[in-house]
């Protein structure tokens, strides 16, 4: 996804509810080499309005998605960070602009990546050519 974001003039920033010493393991596991920070205080997660709790983590839809992922061969590694913190995706800036907001309702709940990329590129569609 990094190249698609860069093509649209944007940046990707990943923020985790973990500690600095967990970053190297995340990079090794994912191959992600871009901007990556942690917030062990969870202050930024709270300010972003992200859900936190066992009910969201073990929401019935999350369990279904987890079973499907397991059946398809995915095995989750050892969790590092807050196990009941939910995530979210935002497109912010430049400055105070808020172009896209998504807050995961439960584990496995993610935004449509096309919508995320579209929020980065607010150029209007080209006018039709011809007479």
């Amino acid at each position: 996804m990094q190249p698609a974001i860069a093509e649209r003039g944007g940046a990707l920033v990943v923020l985790g509810p973990a500690r600095p010493e967990h970053i190297a393991g995340f990079r090794a596991a994912t191959g992600y080499d871009g901007a990556l920070f942690v917030d062990p205080s969870l202050g930024s997660f709270r300010e972003a309005g992200l859900a936190h709790g066992w009910a969201e983590t073990f929401h019935p839809l999350a369990v279904v998605k987890g079973v499907r992922a397991f059946a398809s061969g995915f095995r989750q590694g050892v969790r590092q960070g807050d196990p009941v913190q939910q995530g979210g995706t935002f497109v912010l800036g430049p400055g105070d602009a808020v172009r896209f907001e998504w807050r995961d309702r439960h584990a496995g709940d993610h935004p449509d990546l096309h919508e995320v990329l579209a929020a980065l590129d607010p150029r209007p569609p080209s006018p039709p050519s011809g007479p």
Binding site: A11, L15, P20, D104
Partner: peptide, 30 residues
């Protein structure tokens, strides 16, 4: 402020001050 892998504080807004950024809050590492 958030922390980088060396434990240094970074101001979160500096990442989208001059251009748009996709800011992904992940649930956990691992």
């Amino acid at each position: 402020t958030v922390l980088d892998e060396e434990g240094r504080a970074a101001v979160l807004g500096s990442t989208w001050e001059h251009r748009s950024a996709v800011v992904a809050f992940v649930r956990h590492f691992g």
